[in-house]
Design a protein around this nucleic acid. Sequence first.
DNA 1: ACCTGAACACCGTTCAAGT
DNA 2: ACCTGAACACCGTTCAAGT
Lengths: 220, 220
Amino acid sequence: MPKAKISRSHIIQASLKTLSTCQSLEHFSMRKVATTLDIDASTIYWYFANKQALLQAMADEITAEIAFPNTKLNWQEQLRQVFNNIFDVYTAHPHSAELMIETVPTSKVRLSLVNYIIEILVKAGFSESQAFSAMSTIDFFLAGLIIDLSKEKQLQSGLANKQDSYAHTQFQQVKKVSTDEKLEHIQNSLNNQNIHSPKRQFESGLKLILNGLMADLSPE
Amino acid sequence: MPKAKISRSHIIQASLKTLSTCQSLEHFSMRKVATTLDIDASTIYWYFANKQALLQAMADEITAEIAFPNTKLNWQEQLRQVFNNIFDVYTAHPHSAELMIETVPTSKVRLSLVNYIIEILVKAGFSESQAFSAMSTIDFFLAGLIIDLSKEKQLQSGLANKQDSYAHTQFQQVKKVSTDEKLEHIQNSLNNQNIHSPKRQFESGLKLILNGLMADLSPE
DNA sequence: ACCTGAACACCGTTCAAGT
DNA sequence: ACCTGAACACCGTTCAAGT
């Protein structure tokens, strides 16, 4: 079979595919991408200056999937929708939240998204710096939640594999410490009765922040 | 001079010292710790099962510095104070936020802190799951903020060093894209007139979340 | 009980050399 | 213009061997 031509976008696609098979962003490597493309690792350096540049391109590719809601909706609903879209896109692409955090937004796609979110808030009546701060708050919260989720998933899959003793010991330790030290609330959270689904957890956090924003606005 | 005895706590201290000289958590390595202790890297493995275990011990050491405020204060003030304490401790130890995110809390120190924060919220009248969600929200927000801050600092120091062309190009790109694409709010944030100090940025984000929490509580 | 040295299987990145 | 192979300076981790 004829060998597929190599190009920037080719490498980006292969990188995303490679990342999705990795256990974490840490395990993602140039050499693995090269293997999936059946080329030498050094070839990638003809298209990308370094690993960081490739990671940025991957982040851009993912960010491009995020849709902007209708600007005619009220600002709370617009915010709710963008961040829901972001949540869905991050959830669809394994380790994308890590990717966003590891990577500085300097591209058109990413800066446009940031600008758009600030705009919603400024139009709603917030100051430029309030808007910036609110945007960061939600962004950090979202990224943190997604990262934590993927870590939990990693542990869960570790618990399923009977071989993975690491996940087991970690879990056992939490159980032991929380009973030994009578950490009531940790014990409660272990009986996962009251643990919400990721999406609900996200929605309740976002609601909290939106509530806070509205309280900030109302005095005026 | 007589060679200092090696011990777990010895290694932890040397590790923290080593980390503080690293550009990021990624650059931290077992071999570098060994060099600061003037021992062979393999020696560390007699005291710690693996790198992850060492990182956890480092995270615990830092967490131990976080003071619990007086439980007689009202819940908003208690929350404000713990998270301020956390902010200060994270700020004092370079890359500690990354450390906390990379590491699963299974130790007594860290679980106790989590339990304490949830307790404040439960005593304030929130449900166990609301409390958990609020705690996560603040925690994520804080870690995200600190990580972003240290990344910015890295870039700043890069800009100071005339040699570091990477930081320069990144910065130039943001400037170019935001003017080319007329991203008004990004341009505004570049004229750092309206950018708050880290501490104030943190306080305003925390206030937002606390406001949201209070709005959640008031209907009852 | 504690520590080392060599080894293994990995990294990112460079660069002369090939087509 | 594009791609490779070898090399360099790094990793985490293991394990036989030393004291």
